[in-house]
Each structure stands twice: as C-alpha cells, then as structure tokens.
C-alpha cells in the first residue's frame, strides 16, 4: 500500500557538518538503488535513496539543502516521520569488474550497491567526487568493505584535484570495466555517459516527485518514462533516447529548468 508508515527514528549520525544519516526499523526487502518517500510532517514528503540496508533496519543519508532536508536534519532519535516504499528499480549489478562513480551525495545511494557488488565477488572500483574534503563521507565504509576507492575534490583538499569525470576518464582508459554505474549531478553523469562509450552504463536520475507509484506523471522523462517506476536507474540504451538527460528537469509546476 502506498501509504506512509509512521515510525520512530532509532538513531541519527552526522556524516559531515551538513550531511546526516537517519536509521529506522523497516523490515522490507530492498534492491540497492531503490528509494523511499520520506514524510516530514507539516513540511513535505520527498524521495530519498536508501543508504543502509539491513534485514530489519534501513537508513537514509542526505545533505541539508532545502526546507524539507533542513527539517529532516533537525530530527533526532525518537522523533516520528513517515516512510513509504521502496520505489523504483535499483541497479542491475553484474560482470567481473565494475566502476562506480558518485558525485556529491550520490555516494549515499551508491554505497549499498558497492556492497552488493563486493558480496557478488565482483572487482569493484569506486570514485567519489566532492567539492572539498569537508563534503566527503562513506570513504571508510567503502574501503573497509573491500572496494578500491579513489577520491577527487574540486579544490584538491583530498585526493585527485579536479572533477571526478577526469579521474573516471583515466580509469576507463587504463582498465577494462564491464559496467559503469553512477549517481550524482546530472551533468556529471552525462559526461560520464559520453566517456563510457561501449561499456554497459547505468545512471540514477533525480526528478521532482509526487506520488512515487507511477500515476501522477510529475517525474516523467523522455517518452513518458516514470523515474519513480521505470527508473530511477536507466541503462545506456534508454538514456540515449531520453532527450531530457543532462539537458533539463522540470519544477513542481512542470516548467523546464535547464541544467
């Protein structure tokens, strides 16, 4: 049923000064890359990727950027919020060697997929790009789990200095990957899509959402592809035909907003 289950937050963790994880009990099966609709009473209800997947406990990790995420950021253990889902498809993970590329908070939705790949004994390289050192999180989690991790920061305060796509270009030309999987700013993903050429490619898109279960049409891209239902993860064949990809998204009214 697409109705928010109201529950109490079990635990919260500050990942950085602006990024927080909220853990709660939600014993549903989840494919890495799927998302929840999170209801912050009296404020908003927003789509949010699952960042921790345990049998009973699930987690979301987010940066405070707007009204909803700022309100969510203030919640603490014992506070109530609503959760419905999971929604969407998630990543299809296979092959011998995978390159994950995450930009900004994209690493929150990538992390469970990295863990799934490693559980499947796939050789896993992960690139994380951030503006600067203070916006990086989950590096230890990913390293500890057994992925080979590379970091880039725009200002060079940690790891490679420059864009994560430059780092990706280098990795792609020096290695043979079966898949490139990504989540982050859409222009970054578009660039990566161009770099990936003949490699199997999947990107997770983000759009303004309302229902989350495929009826309202708010999040549609291309020829009526619902990001909440047929997405949020699309492969290279589909992305090729989505004219919106890397070009525009729509605001709540449906107006086009250029990236």
């Amino acid at each position: 049923m697409n109705y928010p289950k109201v529950l109490k937050i079990i635990e919260t963790r500050n990942e950085t000064s602006d990024i927080k994880t909220i853990m709660f009990e939600y014993p549903e099966d989840i494919t890495p890359g799927q998302f929840f609709m999170i209801w912050i009473p009296n404020i908003d209800e927003i789509p949010m990727s699952v960042s921790f997947i345990d049998k009973k406990i699930k987690g979301i990790t987010f940066k405070r950027i707007g009204d909803a995420t700022n309100a969510l950021f203030k919640l603490k253990a014992g506070d109530k919020m609503g959760v419905r889902g999971p929604y969407g498809n998630g990543f299809k993970i296979n092959g011998q060697r995978i390159l994950f590329v995450a930009g900004g908070t994209g690493i929150a939705m990538i992390a469970p997929s990295v863990e799934k790949a490693i559980n499947k004994e796939i050789k896993t390289n992960v690139l994380i790009g951030a503006k600067n050192k203070s916006e990086l999180f989950f590096e230890n989690r990913i390293k500890k789990y057994g992925a080979e991790l590379f970091v880039s920061t725009d200002d060079g305060s940690q790891g490679y200095k420059g864009f994560v796509t430059d780092l990706a270009k280098e990795k792609i030309s020096n290695n043979k990957f079966d898949q490139v999987l990504t989540c982050g700013p859409e222009l970054m993903m578009k660039k990566l899509f161009e770099l990936s050429q003949n490699i199997s490619f999947q990107a997770s898109l983000e759009r303004y959402m309302k229902c989350g279960f495929g009826i309202c049409g708010q999040c549609c891209v291309g020829k009526g592809l619902r990001v909440c239902k047929e997405g949020p993860v699309f492969n290279e064949k589909t992305l090729k035909n989505i004219e919106d990809f890397g070009v525009f998204k729509r605001d709540a009214s449906g107006r086009k907003i250029k990236f």
Partner: peptide, 15 residues
C-alpha cells in the same frame, strides 16, 4: 500562469 500546487504529501493510496 505557472503554478506549483501544494507541497507533498499530495497523492496517497487508501484501501
């Protein structure tokens, strides 16, 4: 004119 509509929750399923 463009109109944003209401904040979420805007659509839910009932029985």
């Amino acid at each position: 004119k463009p109109r944003n509509g209401f904040p979420n929750p805007t659509v839910i399923e009932l029985e």
